[in-house]
Structure formats: structure tokens, C-alpha cells
């Protein structure tokens, strides 16, 4: 499975990709913000997107709206990984179109469970 990881923190991208690799997801791509994520999705094929919320240039919420607004990517499962975990934050993210939500700091088991849940047919 191919996964695009979008986060402005290079540290967090590395932690997420290390976690994905340990879980068996070996083909991971990176983008440093939402705008770069949109550009990457125009040039590569992925099966899932994992994105941060707070990023420069284009936030995670704006990025998800762009993904959902594009015929070629609107079907992609999207996980949001963020420290924004108050109830209002989660409601806003769900309205924007995320399939599932992971709160930092996370465990590998949480990532595994959320990916599997997001991949299940509705």
C-alpha cells in the first residue's frame, strides 16, 4: 500500500514513516504542507493520505477539502494526525472529510487500528 504523509515537521514525518514501515507499509511518500501534498497527488498514485492539521501555506483542513474536491482523489482514505484533539477540533475535521483521527502522541497500535478502520468499506 502506498501512503502519502503530509506534515511540516520533518521529525513527525520521519516518526510516522518509521511507524508505517514497522507496520509493513513500506512505500511512503512525503510532503511538507497541504499545497505540496496537492502537487504530489497530481504526480503519484497513493492508496491513503495521512496529514497534520497545522501547517504553513495550506493547512490540513484546506488540504482535505482540496482532496475531496478533486475527482481523482476524492475517494482516498484520509487520516488526520494532530495534537488538536478537543471535541470541536474533531467535529471540524470530520466535516472537512477525514475518515479517521489520530491524536499525538500516538502508539503504533493506534496508527494500525485507524488505518485498518479507514480502509474498511463503508
Amino acid at each position: 500500500m502506498r501512503i502519502l504523509v503530509v506534515d511540516d515537521s520533518s521529525t513527525m514525518r520521519r516518526i510516522i514513516i518509521n511507524t508505517l514501515n514497522k507496520l509493513g507499509y513500506k512505500e511512503c511518500h512525503e510532503a511538507a504542507n497541504g499545497r505540496e501534498g496537492v502537487e504530489r497527488l497530481a504526480t503519484i498514485q497513493v492508496d491513503m493520505v495521512i496529514t497534520d492539521w497545522n501547517m504553513p501555506e495550506m493547512s490540513g483542513i484546506e488540504f482535505i477539502k482540496a482532496v475531496r474536491g478533486n475527482e481523482a482523489t476524492k475517494h482516498l482514505p484520509v487520516l488526520m494526525v494532530t495534537t488538536n484533539a478537543a471535541q470541536d477540533d474533531i467535529v471540524q475535521a470530520l466535516h472537512a472529510g477525514v475518515n479517521n483521527y489520530v491524536v499525538k502522541p500516538f502508539t503504533p497500535d493506534t496508527i494500525k487500528d485507524k488505518i485498518e478502520a479507514a480502509l474498511k468499506p463503508a
Binding site: 495534537t83 488538536n84 471535541q87
Partner: peptide, 11 residues
Amino acid sequence: MIAGSLRTRMA
């Protein structure tokens, strides 16, 4: 992450 987790907990 420390500040974000504190924010979530206090919320």
C-alpha cells in the same frame, strides 16, 4: 506535543 496534549487534557 507536550503543549497540545496539555491543551487536550485541560479541555
